[in-house]
């Protein structure tokens, strides 16, 4: 058995009050390094609802079980893909979900690397992307949920960690 999963029973990690900040820092670092772009704070974030027609998700297993997701609108996703690839003109539509998936993967990896017990004992799944103009994300488990909203090029982008209890 993979040692990261073997440790699940022994070292279950629970979220604490620092995780929101760590998720924010982790996301900002990924955007700065891979897109050379600063994510900005979102004005009145507490009054906003998590929406967007592109969602990328990565599962976590081992010391922490849950799902990390990123959600934004299609136009923002296209801009992110273009920036990652250094594209001058239009982005190949095939690259958009791939780019968002990879950003989600890197944010999840960067976030868990900041928490010692997770860095050693938590595995990430291959990402999944959902696209559409009318869907709602529902977390069935009753565990904690951490949501961080920031702005990419003045448009909202949401980073959510749903932890399974």
């Amino acid at each position: 058995m993979n040692p990261a999963l073997d440790s699940k029973v022994q070292n279950v990690v629970r979220p604490d009050s620092s995780w929101g900040s760590l998720l924010q820092v982790g996301a900002k670092e990924v955007f700065l390094i891979m897109l050379q772009t600063e994510l900005a704070n979102l004005p009145k974030v507490e009054e906003l609802t998590v929406t967007g027609d592109v969602t990328a998700m990565v599962g976590l297993a081992g010391a922490l079980c849950g799902v990390m997701s990123i959600r934004c609108d299609e136009r923002t996703a296209e801009k992110i893909a273009g920036r990652m690839l250094g594209s001058v003109g239009a982005v190949d539509p095939k690259d958009v979900p791939d780019a968002i998936a990879e950003v989600c993967n890197m944010v999840a990896g960067n976030f868990k690397s900041k928490i010692t017990q997770l860095a050693e004992h938590c595995m990430l799944s291959v990402p999944t992307v959902i696209r559409g103009d009318d869907y709602e994300m529902v977390t069935v488990s009753d565990g904690d949920q951490i949501t961080v909203g920031m702005a990419y090029d003045a448009s909202p982008i949401w980073f959510c960690l749903a932890v399974h209890s």
């Binding site: 040692p3 890197m106 990896g109 050693e120 595995m123 990430l124």
Partner: peptide
Amino acid sequence: VTTEGSESR
């Protein structure tokens, strides 16, 4: 080239 930072893998 991986997101798997410092861990066992």
